[in-house]
């Protein structure tokens, strides 16, 4: 079991922590160097957590649990208009990114209104490629409830809804979680209580994702997503030239690879693991709805009969 954590510390000697985590069988997912500070997002084996904590203390760094690490989240706005952007939607997306998630913003074509809102098949499929969807709705209780009845049709990933009123989850149909005190806010969220609201959203999403992780652990994927990332980086050197943000985006049950599907899907399928399997034995390589990218979905243990 790998634990998602974030290390914040100085650049000096931070290589030691990277090497330690890699030696323990963990993975470095992202490394951000900002002048003299470094932020590492990593997956550490749960049993060896003490050793990493000890090392972090020695380097005067801070180790915090970051349950959003290694997930891809869709932040969905009814449209990409002034009503929702740049404030609130971008604030939410940026905040979740700071907490370790990769966020993609989705603006619906016909997402407005409580009676007339619609979700197209393409939008539905695109949102379903993520680990979780955050729907950022507005000010009025009645509208949020009415809209929730029809807008999330066909979405299979957990849905977190935000809005102004403090509603009980039971009142919001089809939602996995609801977070209040948001609403349609047209200024940058920077006051302390607004930041607390964002913190609350991150906590709620973390809890939802933890539940998903537990579900996945019951029938674990044959190959861990960070392992997929590592093998692609080692065996397909072209990924280094990809200028997309996070060319290999980790998801809880696979990865999104930002390479053209037509050109690369065979190469990806034929990636070899030292255990003797190739990628197509342990995962499905699918075309993604996002541009012409590749989506890799790990096969569960119940299908293959083994875990590498």
């Amino acid at each position: 079991m790998l634990e998602p954590v974030m290390y914040e510390g100085g650049v000096y000697k931070h290589n030691q922590i990277i090497e330690l985590v890699e030696d323990l069988g963990g993975y470095i997912i992202q490394k951000n160097v900002m002048q003299t500070d470094v932020v590492l997002l990593m997956l550490v084996p749960l049993n060896d957590m003490d050793i990493v904590e000890e090392k972090a203390r020695e380097l005067l760094g801070k180790l915090t649990r970051a349950p959003l690490t290694g997930t891809e989240i869709a932040t969905v706005a009814p449209t990409l208009a002034y009503h929702h952007l740049p404030h609130l939607d971008c604030d939410v997306a940026e905040f979740l990114r700071k907490k370790g998630a990769k966020t993609n913003m989705v603006g619906l074509a016909r997402g407005v209104g409580k009676r007339i809102c619609q979700l197209s098949a393409y939008e539905r499929d695109l949102i379903n490629e993520h680990d979780l969807a955050v729907f950022i709705l507005g000010n009025y209780e009645h509208c949020i409830i009415e809209k929730s009845k029809r807008l999330y049709e066909g979405i299979e990933v957990p849905i977190v809804v935000t809005g102004a009123p403090e509603l009980k989850l039971e009142d919001v149909p089809n939602a996995t979680a609801y977070v209040g005190s948001f609403g349609r806010i047209l200024h940058h969220m920077r006051h302390s209580e607004e930041l607390r609201t964002l913190d609350k959203l991150a906590d709620v999403i973390g809890k939802v994702l933890d539940n998903v992780r537990q579900e996945i652990a019951k029938d674990p994927p044959s190959v861990a997503p960070p392992r997929i990332k590592k093998e692609i980086e080692e065996q397909i050197p072209e990924i280094i030239d990809s200028l997309h943000p996070l060319p290999i985006t980790l998801q809880m049950n696979g990865a999104r690879v930002k390479l053209p599907y037509e050109e690369y899907h065979e190469k990806l399928e034929n990636i070899q693991f030292v255990e003797g399997m190739s990628m197509k034995d342990v995962a499905q390589v699918l075309p993604s709805k996002m541009r012409n990218f590749v989506l890799i979905r790990a096969r569960p243990k119940s299908e293959t009969g083994f875990v590498i």
Binding site: N139, Y140, E141, P165, G183, I185
Partner: peptide
């Protein structure tokens, strides 16, 4: 009729 909504709309 929705007091919370009215307050948020005012800020908006």
């Amino acid at each position: 009729p929705d007091a919370v909504g009215a307050k948020t709309t005012k800020t908006l």
